[in-house]
Design a protein around this nucleic acid. Structure first.
Lengths: 170, 170
DNA sequence: ACCTGAACACCGTTCAAGT
DNA sequence: ACCTGAACACCGTTCAAGT
C-alpha cells in the first residue's frame, strides 16, 4: 500500500450535497425518514428534483432583437444560479432532463436560431455554450470552496467567463 | 404481489465514485479499513489522489510547430481520459491541483502561447478550453450512464466536441 | 513505522403495521 | 392515502493496542 498525499489545501465540503441526507431532510419536514419513501423511490429522485429546481431559478428573459444579448442573459443567469446554489456542482453529474432545463435549452436554441445558426452549427454552439457554463460553474465554485484564492492573474472569474462568451459568440 | 420480496442488497455500481469506499478499498489492498488512516487523513485525500491519477493518463505529446494540433491532442486526450474513467465526473467537483494536472495545464498554456496568446487572451482561452472539456466529459458520461441514447440529432459527441474546438481555436 | 479490533455515530432502504 | 418503528446492511473515522 503506497499512498502519497501530494497536496492538502484546506477544504470545506462543497456545498450541501454531501450533507443532503434522507434522514436530515425528513427531520426538516418534521417527518420520519421512512415516510419519504412513500413520495419518492430513492434518494436519486430527490437529487433529480433538486437539480431541476435550481434551473427554475434561471430567469428566462423576453426575447429581444439582439440574439447575442439574449444568449448572454440566459447563460449568465444559468451560471449565476449554479454558483448561488453551492451544491449544484455535485448535482450536475446527473441527467438534466426536467422541464425547467428543457425550457432554458429551448430558449437558448431559439436565440441562436435567430442568430442564423441551424443544423450542425446550432448543435455545436449549443453544446459549446452549455458545457462551458457547466464547466465554469463547477470549477469556480470548487475553487471558491477551497478558499485557496490563488488569483492566478489579475482577472476575475466574471471577466474571464464574459470574454469566453465573446470568443464563442464572435 | 410485490416482486421485491427479498431484501435488496445495496446497488454497487463498480467504477464510480459512489462505490469508492474506504472499506472496499481496504479490502482490495488486503488490509483493514482502519489501516488506511495511517497513510491518509481522510477519504477526501484518496479522492484527490484518484483525480490526479486520472490526469496522469492524459498523454502529454511532444510539442510540434502546429500549436493548434498540440492543443487539440492534449484536450482530446483529456476528454478521453475523463470518459474512460466513468467515475471522473463525480470527482471533478474538487480541486485539480496535483502535479499531473499542473503539467497538462502548463503544456496547454505553452501551446496557446506559441499561437500568439498572452495576457488576458491566454487566460480566457485556457479557461474556455478547460471548462469546455470538463463540461463535455461530465454531461457526455452522464448521458452515457443513463443510457437514454436520445441522439438529439445526427451528430456524434465526438463530432460536436471537435467542432466546438474549431469554434474556439478559429 | 505500520497494522488490527472494537467501537461510535452515522447512512439509505425495506418491511410490517398503524391511521 | 400517508405515516411510524424497528431492523438490515452498510458507511467514515477514532482510539487503544499490537508488531
Amino acid at each position: 500500500m503506497d499512498l502519497h498525499v501530494v497536496h492538502k489545501p484546506h477544504r470545506v465540503p462543497v456545498g450541501n450535497v454531501e450533507g443532503l441526507t434522507m434522514r436530515r431532510l425528513a427531520e426538516r419536514l418534521a417527518v420520519t425518514p421512512t415516510a419519504l419513501y412513500w413520495h419518492v423511490d430513492t434518494k436519486e429522485d430527490v437529487l433529480d428534483l433538486a437539480v431541476d429546481h435550481i434551473f427554475g431559478d434561471v430567469p428566462v428573459p423576453p426575447a429581444t432583437d439582439d440574439w447575442r444579448h439574449d444568449v448572454r442573459t440566459l447563460v449568465g443567469g444559468w451560471r449565476a444560479a449554479m454558483l448561488r446554489h453551492t451544491w449544484a456542482p455535485g448535482l450536475i453529474g446527473r441527467p438534466m432532463l426536467g422541464p425547467n432545463v428543457v425550457a432554458r435549452t429551448a430558449f437558448l436554441e431559439a436565440a441562436l436560431g435567430r442568430g442564423g445558426h441551424d443544423g450542425v452549427r446550432l448543435a455545436v454552439v449549443t453544446r459549446l455554450l452549455a458545457n462551458f457554463v457547466i464547466g465554469s460553474a463547477l470549477t469556480e465554485s470548487t475553487w471558491r470552496a477551497t478558499a485557496t484564492s490563488a488569483t492566478h492573474g489579475g482577472w476575475s472569474d466574471d471577466e474571464l467567463f464574459d470574454r469566453g462568451l465573446d470568443a464563442i459568440l464572435g
